[in-house]
Amino acid sequence: MQPAPASPIATFAARAVMLAVVWWMLTVGDPSAWGFGAVVIALVAALSVLLFPPSIHRLRPLGLLQFMAYFLGHSVIAGVDVARRLLTPSLPIKPGEITLSLRLPEGGPRWLLANTLSLMPGTLSVHLEENQLTVHCLDTSDAIEPGVRQAEFQVARAFGITLDPPEGVRA
């Protein structure tokens, strides 16, 4: 069931390509920066393979694109939601916390979900311990859990992990 981790050489190559893209952005495409850049990229990629060995959870390009679309759409909703509450004279908030059990494996996926939720409508990750995530909610009279489950599903898809789609959420 669990896929095997990628080989160290494939991981090295993938990370080196990614670092090269970042280097290209940072140096704004200056050709004279590549001599130094090649050395740095090789060293950093090698070091990253040593420090963070290949994980079975790799980002999938298609899933990552779908996740980014979901993320962008929902961060707009989040901003508009906060704006609407702020501009309503009665200030309709009802702060509180809920604790949920995550179904994601630990490591990168859980970390990505916790950080994503802080930017999603009405949720703020407060505490992550084992698989128990405590979320601070702007309004506990809203249904919080379906939104969290949907974000969890999107993160799982970005990493190519299969979860059962949560009830009431379109897969």
């Binding site: 961060s75 989040a78 901003g79 939601d81 906060v82 702060p95 930017l119 009405g122 601070h136």
Partner: peptide, 15 residues
């Protein structure tokens, strides 16, 4: 309170 202020700062400013 501080927690709700973080909500406002994080979401509105990032947008």
């Amino acid at each position: 309170d501080t927690l709700t202020r973080i909500h406002a700062l994080t979401k509105a400013d990032n947008l």
